[in-house]
Every structure is written in structure tokens, then in C-alpha cells.
Design a protein around this nucleic acid. Sequence first.
DNA 1: GCAAGGTC
Length: 688
Amino acid sequence: MKLIVTEKNTAAKKIAEILGAGKVKAESYYKIPFYVFANGGGEEFVSIGLKGHILQLEYPPEYSDWRKVEPRELIDADLVKSPSAKSVVNALQKAARQASRIIIATDYDREGELIGLEALELALQANPKLAEHVKRARYSALTAEEIRNAFTNTVELSVPLAQAGEARQDIDLIWGATLTRYISLATSRLGSQFLSVGRVQSPTLKLIVERELERRAFVPVPYWQIFADLAAEPGPFTARHKTERFQDKGAAETALGRARAAETGLVTGVKTTQKQLPPPPPFNTTSYTKAATALGFSAARAVRLAEDLYLAGYISYPRTDNTVYPESLGLKEILGQLSHSRELKSHADELLERGELKPSRGKKQTTDHPPIYPVDVPKVGDIDEAQWKIWHLVARRFLATLGDSAVSETGRIDLEIGGEPFMLSGSRILEEGWLAYYPYGRSKDDEMPKLKQGEQVQVVKVSLESKETQPPGRYGQGRLIELMEQNGLGTKATRHSILQTLYDRGYIRNTPVEPTETGISMIRALDTYANLITRPEMTARLETEMSDIAESKITREEVVQRSRALLHDAYKMMENNKEALAGEIVKGIQEDKLVGACPNCGKQLRVIRSKRTKKRFVGCEGYPECSTTYPLPQRGSIMPTYKTCPECGSPKIKVLNKGRRPWELCIDPDCPTKEEYKLKRAQKEGAS
DNA sequence: GCAAGGTC
């Protein structure tokens, strides 16, 4: 029997269907499915899917007590790999014992090579005779053509490529564990409150912190704008003074006076230009997530919804970097599927009638998986409303990538009013092209007045508006994921979970994303004493080194050893400045505990944990002079809102519980706003 | 109770 090992179940199943020409028997070991089939020549095959990585890198048990081990020891300690998905390992080894050959068919990327090597080592443990009969099949799409090709032209597993992945694993754990423990111990944040540090999470946090500091440093500058309401066909319209921002109020008022003195304006120029809007590139994970968050979904929800649709068979694999459809992908077949959709049939049919399809191409062409495309049309009732929205987004994006360029017309009219220059502009779509399939984010046409050069228009009103320049906005989750990609941070499969980690650690909150004081002080401290870990360059450098390992220019051990030396330097630096470093972070943590002013004495109220009862409550900093205290909910994380309750004057807080809506309340339990809640609770208790 | 990377 020949054993085929894939990275995931869906791939194992699909490969069996393609190579087994439909005659496939599904079985399982320890609830792990595998597929038995024979090829044309009567050879027996088994294909089995892993669940991604099945081994976990960790420190040996003697390092597990944080208090008893100096973090420095972690830098040079041995690392061990242990099975993380036991039933998969058992199923794989059971199948391997019966096999005479093994074909590694994990994903066609670096992690895929490593997952393949891990699986191979486990298989050889169970059946050493397989060592002479190992092949690697590389495919970048689960299409019949590509799969048949990959299995007739198998190659060797690239051990150096897999070792590049191992170097990444080593470096991530060594740096992450050493710094996480060092910072947590130095600030006495142990147990569930620990403070984490990592090659990806820390530079990502820094992006968020830097934006917040820019906002704080921003000084708004006043400016003035002049608008003129004019009467013309087809309706009244508004022109703006050509000086977009008057920095000087006096100058603005002079221009205003001159324009107000005029009863009519003169059209001095009319210009229109046409612009081609090319169709958007196919969706990869990042562009999909950005588009889905623009519809109002959080990044985590967007990823989850795509995963649901993929597992239900409605869209293709959602974790991909690729933005170019592979040749083997049957675009017409996909359109044929879409013509079963009531809403999309007319669009799909229109494209199907064309002789040749010319799909758009993005900048990234990779071998991991095809871009995201619709696979099947869900029936009403099969999926919920959110999934429905996401499916349509994916399906419409697919149609858009096959559409023609849209053509827009941009118009500009110049006017003179009382000797002052005014202008207005607008644009409209002349030819819809792909926009007919993909209406998301489309701006409305601005209707331009029908005016000719030399024409006079009636001035109805001229007004002055005073405004202020605005600080740069906070990042939304979709934007952050895009920024991470641009900075080379994380991967398509991990970026959203990195953000989740930052939320879980209390480094960031809300959306758009803002850092907490703990997050800000953490970055300040790391930037000062261990700045390598806060910089995207660490990842960039690792990427080059991984390429060198893959090309056998350098060994995995050399790269890891060099990285250890750098970490020793950083460690010394931290150790020499331990008090300042810890002080900085503790200051931030303390600031996050402040919830607002005490209504009795005006000093700060803060969250305190009772040493005796271990319960938390709000107490006044003026204690013992002021003994104001309030009880707190014991579950969820407490966030200040910097608002006070209009009824009782006590500060309002927000309580965040997993899976629940944030709960905003004032901290005074006797506040009149609580009456209704108390009544309800009393009724509930009375009833039960 | 450490990271980041897979996948469910």
C-alpha cells in the first residue's frame, strides 16, 4: 500500500477522489478519517490528512516552573518536540506500519515542508523500512490536472527547507519564552496575568502604539473654508473656494467679503476627463479580510465565517497568499456553478458567453493555494445571514475579477465670484464593467451641474466655515492585518490570532484599535532595552536567513546559535536596567487600573485586589482619609471609560466578558439607574 | 501559565 499524507482532511479526500476516479472508501482510525482507493493499475493507496502541525516544540519539564528557573537559562536550553495531536499521530503511525511507500503531499510552502518532515519522522519511527521509499508531491491547487501531474512527477522532500522552518520555531520559542518570562517576573505579573513578548506580536503592538503617540502629539491647526451656494440646472449646487484651507482668518474674511459682494458668478472653465478603473485582483486572505471588515465584521469573525464556508464546501481554501488564478483552475466551470445562483445567474451567464476569459491578476503569485473563489452555491436555509453575506462577497469578487474595466468620468468646473476663484468637482460611472458584479464600497455618482464656459450663475449664499486639522485615525482591524502583511509580520493563517493575543494580554482594546497604558509602556520599555524584538526587521532578517538555510548556504544550527548570541546581549542590557524597565511597565499597569475621580474627595479611584479575599473592588487613593469603595463584578476585564454617570456622578466602567456584549455601567451600586436591574433580579430570584 | 505556525 502507498500512503499519501496531506496537511488537512479536505486535501486527503480530494486527492483520493481525483486519483481514485471516484471509487473511494472512507474509513478511520481513532476518529481520524482516511481514504482507501486504487489507481488505474490496481495499486492500493491510502490518503490521510493531518491537522497542520502535529508536533509541539517546548522546553523539557525541568524548566517549567517560572519562579525556579532564571529566564537566561532558557536561551541555551535544549528544546524537545512532543506530539500535540495524539490521535492523528497514532492514526498516521498505524497506517505507516502497513505501507510500503510514502508520499508527502502537504501544502506547497515552507511550513508544509516542515509538517511533511514531522509526519515522515513519525512514520519512519513506526516503520523504518519506509525510509528508502519516500516521495514528495507538490501541487498548488486541488484540481485534477495539477494533482495528477504532482503524483506522476514526484520530487524529493526538501530537508533544508523544512529545517528553515525549524529554525523559525526555535528562535520564536527561545526569544518568546525568555523575554516573556523575564518581563513577567520583573513586574511580578505571574499566573494568568503574565505579559508576553514575541517576534510578531511585539512589532504589531508597536505599530498600534506609534499611531496612538502620533495622535497624542498632534496639535490641531485651525483653518477656514469658503463655500458658495449657487443656483443652476438641474438643481442648486455648492462650490468651494479654490484655496482649500485658509490658514489665516483675515485672508479668508477678505475673500469672503469679495465673494459676498457679487450677485453672479462666471464659469471660467469646464473640464471632463475619463478614467479606466481596472477590475480588482482575486481575493487572498488579507484582501478578503479587509473587504469583510469593511462590511462591519471583526477580523476574527471574518476569518471564522470564511472557515465555515470552506468546511461546508461553499468556497475554496481561505488561507492563501496567492492573487493569481492558476492555469488549471476551471474558470468556466466555476461560472457554471454560479449560474445556479438566482442572484448571480445573469452575471455568470453574461461572462460564460464570452469566448475567452481574462481574469485580473494581483501582485502576489505563490504556490500555496489558489486565490479564494466560490465552489458551490448555498441554498437558502443552509447557511445563516452572515455566511450568506460573506459567500456573496466572495462570489461577486470572483465575477469582478473576470469583468471589464469600468469607465468613470471626472468633471471639474472653475468659477469666478467677485474676483475670487471657486471650483467644484464630481465623478460618475459611464460604463459599469466589473462594478455591476461587485457593488461594495462604490461611491454614489455626483451629479454635475450642466454649465458651459462663459455662463453666468446666480449666487445664493456665501459662507465661511472654521475647521481644525484632525489627528491620524486609529487603525481598524482589517487595516492592521494589511499593515502586518506589508511589514512582513505573521502569516495569512496567524495574523488575526496575533491581534487576539494582544487583546487577551490587555495590551490593546476596542475597535478601531487603541493601546492600553500597559501596551504603551511595554513598547517603551522594550524599545529602550531590547529593541530588536519590537522591530519588523527581526522577521525580515529571519526570512533571509531561512532562505539561506533552504538553499543550504548556512545551517539551521548556525542561524539559531547566532540568534542566541543576540538574545544574550539583549538579556544583559535588560538585566543592567532591570529596575527602570520594570518601573516603566508597572507605571503603565497602574495607570490602567485608574477608573476616574472619587465623587467624595476628588482623588483617583482604582481597581484593587483584596489580599485577604482575593476579590477585586474599586477603592480611593485617598485611603485612609477617604474610605470610598465600590464593589465590582468579579468576572471579565474592567476598562475605564473616562465618563461619569449623569445620575450619581460616579465614574463609568466597561466590563468585557468573552462572548458577551461589553457592559457599560457606573460603579455606584445604589445609583437610580440600577433600580430596574435590581427589580428584575429580585423577580428572577423570587421566581426560582 | 512562555512564541508562532499549522488546522478543526
